[in-house]
């Protein structure tokens, strides 16, 4: 679950919501005779002669088109469902050396190093981390449990001045964003 899922969900909800609004709105407008009589009269049955004629003329292509639309709808729905469980943990990160060689670093190794460094602080009770994002733009997701007396500046310092710059050095990248969830507990 990550930010991309959230954004994708909102886009999907927006599209489906607009579709429903459109369908419902059109039906309401037509049913209340708000639309011009010549184009869309409200006192016709839902399936009237023009509709029947269209189906008769264009069948079976029309039906195949409907079937295709239904299949596409189902596939989009399935993809949307699968995306919810997406865990974007990064497997390997590639470090490019100027000499032309490359080194692959396991994401979990880097993440564990960051977590260990954060956990070294006496006020931090436990810390775990995972590398997320893409090889080109990695990020680190941290979960920290800290003592309830923790001054946040101490955690900020431990992260911002030690753990993260060390990670940036190790990955040879200037920008590695970090998202940290802190839970304050009684020691």
């Amino acid at each position: 679950m990550n930010r991309k899922t959230g954004r994708g969900n909102r886009i999907g909800l927006l599209i489906m919501g607009l579709l429903l609004l459109l369908l419902g709105g059109y039906t309401l407008a037509r049913g209340t005779h708000a639309l011009p009589r010549a184009v869309a009269p409200g006192d016709e049955p839902l399936v009237n002669d023009p509709v029947r004629t269209a189906f008769a003329t264009y069948s079976p292509w029309l039906w195949w088109a409907i079937a295709l639309a239904a299949v596409v709808l189902a596939l989009f729905g399935l993809r949307w469902l699968f995306v919810q469980g997406r865990r974007d943990k990064l497997g390997d990160l590639r470090l490019q050396h100027s000499s032309g060689g490359t080194t692959d670093v396991r994401g979990s190794t880097v993440a564990d190093a960051v977590a260990d460094e954060v956990g070294a602080h006496p006020a931090v009770l436990s810390a775990s981390a995972a590398m997320v994002g893409t090889k080109a733009h990695p990020a680190v997701r941290l979960r920290v449990v800290a003592d309830e007396d923790l001054p946040m500046s101490a955690l900020r310092e431990q992260l911002g001045r030690r753990a993260i710059p060390h990670m940036r050095q190790a990955l040879e990248l200037a920008h590695v964003p970090a998202i940290t969830r802190v839970n304050l507990e009684r020691r």
Binding site: R10, G12, G17, G24
Partner: peptide
């Protein structure tokens, strides 16, 4: 149609 439109509005609001 009214129910559908309201549902659609709810989804749009949730999204925005």
């Amino acid at each position: 149609a009214g129910v559908a439109a309201l549902l659609g509005l709810l989804l749009v609001l949730l999204a925005l």
